[in-house]
Design a protein around this nucleic acid. Sequence first.
DNA 1: GTTGACAAAATTGGTACCAATCCTATTTAC
DNA 2: GTAAATAGGATTGGTACCAATTTTGTCAAC
Lengths: 209, 209
Amino acid sequence: MTGSQTVTEVDGERDATQLILQDIQSGVYAPGTWLKQIDLETRYGRGRNEIRRALDRLALKRVVEHVPNRGYHVYLSDGKQWDDIAEIRIMLETGIAGKVIANATLADISGLRDLANRFQGLLLSGTVLELYEANLAFHRAYVDLAGNAELHSVIAELRQRTSSAPVSQWHTRSRIEVSAAEHHEMVDAIAEKDELRLKTLIEQHIRQK
Amino acid sequence: MTGSQTVTEVDGERDATQLILQDIQSGVYAPGTWLKQIDLETRYGRGRNEIRRALDRLALKRVVEHVPNRGYHVYLSDGKQWDDIAEIRIMLETGIAGKVIANATLADISGLRDLANRFQGLLLSGTVLELYEANLAFHRAYVDLAGNAELHSVIAELRQRTSSAPVSQWHTRSRIEVSAAEHHEMVDAIAEKDELRLKTLIEQHIRQK
DNA sequence: GTTGACAAAATTGGTACCAATCCTATTTAC
DNA sequence: GTAAATAGGATTGGTACCAATTTTGTCAAC
């Protein structure tokens, strides 16, 4: 049974890569699942060619794995990989702490506060994917304050690598609550220009999530 | 004049992506050059399909830029981008300094020393590409000592992003000499377990290159 | 009942073709 | 003589088809 009706009314312009990625992140395709080209073709209403390109890109991003003459399947991330990537993120996000504090205007801080609030607001009503997006928006805004255009894409890529099963993270509500609180603490630290505290918070935040 | 004979006798198994990348890094294709599919097809003796996939991958890596219905051209890296990437590399390579020192066995240090020597040895006789590869091997070995499997690919990717014109870097011999000396100093610092000095050296090394 | 071989179906991956788009050179009007 | 318009050529990018490989299902032998 490969069937699955078209998921789209008007996905119109969006890239197939992101659609597939989003479905993987939403848990539609569990880790280990084989992604058959024909299925994807009908599901997203795209040509064979675009599907192949999308799968190749995802394979490059290590979201799926390619086995010649067998196809592509969702990557099964092990614990070690998660730890390694967390460590890299810590190095980068703490590394820019000083710059962020130096660059942050009052408007920036207020913007961050809004994003932290939005995440907190979704805590009760939001879906997992919405929470995921809100959390991502917060971290993205933080990283942007460093003024390093490249860093943005690097971190985004890192996130995608582990996000194979974001559902499996944040299983308990209490953990999400902690995350929401930490977001606010981070904003506080930025407002008070307390670099050391900010770094400590970030490390703690990334590790536990 | 689009002509250019096949560059290969037996490139047999190597991926077209890497062949093109290597040619860009060697300066065969200058920044800004349009990479026509037909030319690449004949030059590397590959099908249209593989060329397209390779170009798509390189576009994803930001080595080339894709303009719809126009084609792909070698990316022109501006100074800001170089600085941004250098900064990221500094954060990462200094960030692992402690772990590297902790993990490095005598054999590891000796291995690093060999690689530093090899770079130095190529200083007179080697081509630009050989120097580039030797330098890369040294840094790769250093990064590997951190025991973070993911970090490896992240840094490799970062390097590729700026390596559009490695020829333009290292224009003067004196700079290469300085780099070679710094490699040795880094090994010294690791051997003496002087983390602070190692970090200083790395920052200096990456920035000036 | 289990294991092995064989045939059929399904899936991938490559090749070739064709339409759409863009650049260039020539011609024409002013 | 210069500029706009037009025709021609070249390049990209998508679609369809076909071959190669693998998996699944069936049958026979032990």
